Simulated scan of single mutants.
Amino acid sequence: MLDESVPTGIDASVPHPARRYNYWLGGKDNFQADRESADEIEAKFPGMRAGVRANRDVLRRITGFLAADAGIRQFLDIGTGLPTADNTHEVAQRIAPNSRVLYVDNDPLVMTHARALLTSTPEGTTDYIQADLREPEKILDSPELRSTLDLGQPVALMLIAILHFLPERERARAIVRQLVDALPSGSYLAATHFTTDFMPADELVVYRQMLDAGRTDIWPSTRAEFTGLFEGLELVEPGVVLATEWRPDGSGPEVDPSRISMWAGVGRKP
């Protein structure tokens, strides 16, 4: 673990979603606060790790669809998290080596690891900026975005397991709209989002209590609320479904929907 040496700019006493996610995936780039937060959530909701893994798997499938079937060569991945297997640029560049990817995250540790580990193919480009989804204008105005992506050509906006950290649904929709509006026709929005739609009644009561007490920073969305994020876009088949049901490839085991609790969807900008 990393507790012995905390990089500059990181508050190891406050859990961070990217490091908690890393812990659930079996990684070692996390601190005690991250592990305690993750363990508390998982103790009450045993399916959390299954949902996290399902989310990682659907990222791979969505990226593969965008690169292979949709012909996308540019990706804006916001809330990328710590590097692990099959990162966006690795999947995309296996299919199209000239793919260009800009990663965005607000955790300095993510950026440190990204710069050290996420290297591009010679034909493509991979870059990283430390920025916050809640300030989309800073992302869109960044010199790294302008040098990595051509906003005159289609871009895939990847918002994978990030929007549920925004407690206000209308604010989330406004941010998505601002980002999508900056992209040209033929671009795509790919998103996943935590939901309690399948959660057993007893767990749902506990989850609401945790939200009210500030013991979790993951704000759920109903299917209707999540679908609303794709307003004005053409939903790609199979539409908004559980992460495990978005174009499954048979590589993962079948899991009870209540243990997944993650919506997934991809929409094309006309």
Rank of each mutant, 00 (worst) to 15 (best):
D3Y: 01
V6D: 13
I10T: 12
R19T: 12
R20F: 06
N22V: 12
G26F: 04
G26V: 11
K28D: 15
K28V: 14
Q32E: 13
A33S: 14
I41V: 14
E42T: 12
P46A: 13
R49W: 03
A54R: 06
N55R: 12
N55A: 14
R56G: 05
V58E: 01
R60I: 00
R61D: 02
D69P: 05
G81N: 09
G81P: 10
R94M: 09
P97V: 05
N98T: 12
S99M: 10
S99P: 11
V101L: 03
Y103A: 04
P108E: 11
M111A: 09
M111V: 11
H113N: 04
A116E: 14
T119P: 00
P122G: 10
T125N: 06
Y128N: 14
Q130C: 05
D132A: 01
P136R: 02
K138H: 05
I139H: 03
S142G: 09
S142E: 10
P143S: 12
E144K: 00
E144Q: 11
S147D: 12
T148Y: 01
D150A: 14
L151S: 10
A161D: 01
H164T: 04
F165D: 01
F165G: 05
A172L: 03
I175T: 00
L179Q: 03
A182D: 07
A182R: 04
A182M: 02
A182K: 02
L183V: 12
L183Y: 08
Y188G: 10
L189N: 09
A190T: 10
D197A: 15
V205W: 00
R208M: 12
R208D: 15
A213H: 07
G232N: 07
E237Y: 08
E245M: 05
D249S: 10
G252L: 11
P253I: 13
V255R: 07
I260R: 08
G265T: 07
